[in-house]
């Protein structure tokens, strides 16, 4: 490895350590194991849809916990590499969480399927990113958690109408619904763009 490549790798590792990414990965792993163990139990239809949603929101909240910078203004004015570091961290963590949750559902029944699981996770993370930019990294977790309440309510309305059918409330839509996937994707893309460019509000 060249000296420059080693320096870039070292910068990334320091950035990730400073954002407490190892702790977030541990939380994601715990969430994935919990999901796997919980899915062995028999659930009614409502519970089987609700359970993965709670775990997805927990993973997104763990990712949101990495968005705040402990270094403040000196970091913001220290160069032009921060946007790359921010986006690498968010995309990497989201991909890791999606993989961990998908692996956790292998061999156990998952209502909605892996597509819904990934869609919901991506949307939750997008809301965390938008919250970080709007109200600060320390409160970024409030986005996924608040939306979880809406998602649980959307599932509830499928049994106790009138049902919430807008694709913007994607947890209430089936996994193969393209509109819901698009909405979750748009929220993630906008959140990622804003966070990459500006970082979390201080």
């Amino acid at each position: 490895m060249s000296v420059e490549a080693a320096a870039r790798s070292r910068l990334l590792s320091l950035f990730l350590a400073g954002r407490r990414v190892p702790a977030a990965l541990a939380a994601v792993a715990v969430a994935a194991i919990t999901l796997h163990l919980a899915l062995y139990r028999p659930w009614n239809t409502y519970g089987a849809l609700q359970l993965p949603l709670i775990v997805e929101a927990a993973c997104a909240a763990a990712i949101a916990g990495t968005l705040a910078s402990p270094f403040g203004e000196p970091e913001r004015v220290a160069g032009s590499r921060l946007p790359f570091l921010r986006s690498t961290m968010v995309v990497g963590l989201t991909a890791a969480a999606a993989c961990a949750l998908a692996v956790a559902t292998v061999g156990v029944p998952l209502s909605g399927g892996v597509a819904a699981l990934v869609r919901n996770l991506v949307g939750f993370v997008g809301l965390g990113l938008l919250c970080a930019a709007a109200v600060g990294g320390g409160l970024a977790w409030t986005g996924p958690v608040t939306y979880l309440i809406l998602g649980v309510y959307a599932l509830y309305t499928q049994w106790h109408g009138p049902a919430l059918t807008t694709p913007w409330v994607w947890p209430g839509r089936p996994g193969h619904d393209p509109g819901a996937a698009l909405c979750a994707g748009v929220v993630f893309a906008i959140g990622l763009a804003v966070y990459t460019w500006r970082g979390a509000r201080e």
């Binding site: 080693a6 910068l11 320091l14 950035f15 970091e75 160069g79 032009s80 590499r81 921060l82």
Partner: peptide, 12 residues
């Protein structure tokens, strides 16, 4: 070191 790397000081 984190700030040195962020400030794009040549790696060497």
């Amino acid at each position: 070191e984190y700030f040195a790397l962020l400030k794009e000081i040549p790696a060497a």
